[in-house]
Design a binder for these strands. Structure first.
Lengths: 138, 138
DNA sequence: TCCGAAAATTAGACAGAGTCCAAGTCCTAG
DNA sequence: CTAGGACTTGGACTCTGTCTAATTTTCGGA
C-alpha cells in the first residue's frame, strides 16, 4: 500500500477491530501518511493544525488503543517522551542522541544470536534493538 | 571485587575523577552494593532511609555526573522513568513488562550481526538490546 | 588555625508528559 | 424520535525531572 487516504484509514481501523471515529481517523492518518515516529505531542499538533478538534485526552486514549490493537508500536528511546511507530513489522531503530532523530533499521539482514533461554513461564513480547549514534567529534 | 564498602566507593569515585563527598559516596554505595537497576526515586529512598540527608536535586545531579564520568549506565525501558545500572560492561537487558523487573543478560554469547553501515560522520555511542517478556497466559 | 574562593548541596518553584474524572456529545438500533 | 452506550472533552492532578538563588562544605594557602 503506497497511498494513504482517510478512507483507507477507516478500513484499516475496522480491520483492527477499532470503531473509526473522526478523531481516530485523523490520528491514524497523521501517523500512517507520514510513516514517521511521532510523539503524542506531535500527533496532537498535527491533528489540530488547522482547527483545534481533538483533545489531549483523546490523543492519549487513541494512541493507547491503537497500541493494544496492534496497529502501531511504541518506541522508548528518549527518557522524556514515548514515540509511536506506524511500522509494526520486525525492524530496529537508529537514534541520534544529539538531535533526537529516530530512524528505522530494516531487520532483514540483522541477526541476533546466542540469547539465553527465557525463564519458564515467560514469553517474549518483543525485542528492541536500539543503536545510539552521535555526530563524530571534529 | 566482591565486597563494597563506603571506603571502596571513595576510591572508585576518585578513580573516575569525581570528588568523593558524603552524598556521592552514599549514592554510589546504594547502586554498587546492590548491583541492581535503580530509578532516581529509588536511590532517593534508599539513601534517605534512616535520616533524610540527601536532597532530590543532589540525587539527580549526582546520577548525571556518574553517567558523564562513565561510572554507571542509563537504561531506558520504562516510559515513565529512567533506570541506572552500575554494570557498565557490555550486556543487555531483560524487561518484564507486567512487573517492571529489569535484569541483565550477559553479552558473552550474544552476537548481533548484519547491522548496516552508519551514515558518514556518525559514530556509535552504544547499542541497547532489550528483550521484553511477560508471564505466559494460562 | 583562620580565611576566602570554589565546589557542592539545598528547598522549593517550575516544566512537561501523561492520567483521571465527571460532564457533555455523538451515534445508532429500535 | 428516543434511549443508551460509546466516545470525547476540559481541566485538575500526578509524577519525573530541571532550575535557581541562597546556603553550606571543602580545601589550599597564609
Amino acid at each position: 500500500m503506497h497511498h494513504y487516504s482517510r478512507d483507507n484509514m477507516a478500513e484499516l481501523l475496522r480491520a483492527h477491530d477499532i470503531n473509526p471515529t473522526h478523531q481516530r481517523i485523523e490520528i491514524a492518518y497523521a501517523l500512517f501518511s507520514r510513516q514517521e515516529h511521532l510523539s503524542a505531542d506531535q500527533v496532537m499538533t498535527i491533528v489540530n493544525d488547522r482547527h483545534a478538534e481533538t483533545s489531549k485526552a483523546t490523543v492519549y486514549n487513541t494512541l493507547k488503543l491503537f497500541l493494544e490493537k496492534g496497529l502501531i508500536r511504541e518506541v522508548i528511546v528518549d527518557p522524556s517522551k514515548v514515540f509511536y511507530d506506524p511500522n509494526t513489522g520486525p525492524h530496529h531503530h537508529l537514534y541520534e542522541v544529539d538531535t533526537g532523530r529516530l530512524t528505522d533499521i530494516m531487520a532483514d539482514d540483522v541477526r541476533i544470536e546466542g540469547l539465553p533461554e527465557l525463564p519458564k513461564g515467560m514469553e517474549t513480547v518483543g525485542i528492541d534493538l536500539i543503536v545510539r549514534v552521535k555526530r563524530t567529534a571534529q
